[in-house]
Amino acid sequence: MIDLRLNHRQGDFHLNVNLSLPAVGITGLIGRSGSGKSTLFSCLAGHLKPRQGCISLSGRPLFNSTLGLNVPPAQRRIGVVFQDGLLFPHMSVERNLAYGSQNRGTVFWHEVIEALDLTHLLNARPLRLSGGERQRVAIARSLMAEPELLLLDEPVSALDPALKARTLDLIARVQRQTQIPMIYISHAPEEIRRLCHQVVTLQDGQVRSVTEGEAHGVGPKLAAVGQVICAR
């Protein structure tokens, strides 16, 4: 389970969230701009320290204001994929992928590269990549670090419609194969209902609804990916 009890104030904005989500499949987090999606994203990833509350992931406490606990992002095992990929521009694609990976050259490494169709891009520099390619590398880079949870912050919003659809399919496939739970943040509900197993709607810093998404069930794991994930 992903347990979130957060109370955070930033100027006039007040985030007050009390959520328990199953750590399986893809959870959509939707809401207009200013609804608190990004603040929640930052609190979960550990990039922002909430004023009050607690966060735990599969029973592992990540933040607890009463106990003074705040696990740093590097130890949270929560991967992040930003809107524009945000690859390290001074490193090749391969070095980007290896940055958080302990598995360079292993079966898992090759599985992820193959699943995201990156073999021909390994030596390229991020500035030479198209928007879709950048996002594929960013997703792969996060997966290589074997996160327990992957946060995707509007990863397709900058892509054209055709590429958007392909990337969404890819995300769904990668989730089925790796079984890594994902939280997909978006301001466009139509974009993610199809993709998500459950959808949380935020409004003015509060949870307005938690509904079931259109995606059901979980697909088979890739054998190699499953082994590595289970072995950790």
Binding site: A74, L86, F88, G100, R141
Partner: peptide, 25 residues
């Protein structure tokens, strides 16, 4: 600043973030 955050979320210590991301940039 999100580049440093991305690096931290990939498991990098503050020192590693500085020497491998911030300093080269």
């Amino acid at each position: 600043p999100r580049l440093a955050r991305a690096a931290r979320s990939l498991g990098a210590s503050e020192l590693r973030v500085f020497f491998t991301v911030t300093l080269p940039l």
